[in-house]
Amino acid sequence: MSDDVTQKIIGIIAEQAVLDPSEVTPESTLEDLGIDSLGLVETVFAIEEAFDISIPFNANDPAASEFDISNVQAISDAVKGLIAEKQG
């Protein structure tokens, strides 16, 4: 879990939630961390910028997006998938 991608994502999420990275665990949900719908859109944007990837995410109905945001671990796994896809 302590790989670079995950650490970077934890850093982004912690910044968005105004928390110390140590308070963000793989099991944390964005809701637990107090990130609302606007915060979520900003988080997705920050992750896209950090990894130069495009995340399939529709704020209109986040649950229906292909991108799993159920917790920090899920986000990290999904981002790793997108990075691998990009490197082809």
Partner: peptide, 20 residues
């Protein structure tokens, strides 16, 4: 686009399948 509330495929108000 940045706000991610736009539909890529159509405007379907009130329909269960609406996506922006």
């Amino acid at each position: 686009e940045g706000l991610r509330v736009m539909s890529k495929d159509g405007c379907r108000p009130f329909s269960r399948t609406r996506n922006g």
